[in-house]
Structure formats: structure tokens, C-alpha cells
């Protein structure tokens, strides 16, 4: 049965290559996108942490994005 699944009556090379290429491309794009997102989150959180206490308070109070990024960043750290 496994032999049949792999050979696909002679079309195995074409079928498996198509699926493999699709999923390798998808996995690569996912990895790259996730890595870029985490990089920007880290940099953004770092920049907020470098602000003075007063400025930091203003940013967190006025920006939902900043407070969410900070909380998710502190969880990962």
C-alpha cells in the first residue's frame, strides 16, 4: 500500500514534488514572516523601554498597540 502511495502509478515524482514544493514554500514564508514580526515587536518594545518613565506612561496609556506589544514581549522574555 505504501509502495502504491509513493509511486502513484508512475506519477509519484510529479505529485509528491508538487505537494513538497507547495508546503516548503509555505513553511519558508511562514518562518520569514514570523521572524520579521518578532523582530519588529522586539525592537518596538525595546524602544518603549528606553523612554523616560513619563513618556512610557503616556505611550502605554494612548496606544493599545504599544501596551499589547509590551505585554506579549514581557511574556516571551
Amino acid at each position: 500500500m505504501i509502495q502504491n502511495l509513493l509511486s502513484m502509478n508512475g506519477y509519484g515524482l510529479f505529485v509528491w514534488s508538487s505537494f513538497l514544493i507547495t508546503f516548503l514554500a509555505c513553511a519558508f514564508v511562514y518562518y520569514k514572516t514570523h521572524k520579521t514580526l518578532k523582530k519588529y515587536e522586539r525592537e518596538f518594545a525595546k524602544e518603549i523601554n528606553e523612554l523616560s518613565i513619563e513618556q512610557k506612561k503616556i505611550v502605554i496609556e494612548n496606544s493599545k498597540v504599544a501596551s499589547q506589544v509590551l505585554s506579549s514581549y514581557s511574556k516571551t522574555v
Binding site: L37, Y40, I48, L51, V59, V65
Partner: peptide
């Protein structure tokens, strides 16, 4: 949808980062 959401989130953070520099 997953990739789009991650990319969109990155774009939002980029804007917020720029705004932060204006402070």
C-alpha cells in the same frame, strides 16, 4: 489569512515605531 495577519501586524508596528520616534 495567517500570513496576512502577521504581515499586517508588522506594518502596524512599523507605523507605531515611526510615531514613537516623533516623541
Amino acid at each position: 489569512a495567517l500570513i496576512f495577519l502577521m504581515k499586517y501586524k508588522t506594518e502596524i508596528i512599523k507605523i507605531k515605531k515611526k510615531n514613537l520616534k516623533r516623541l
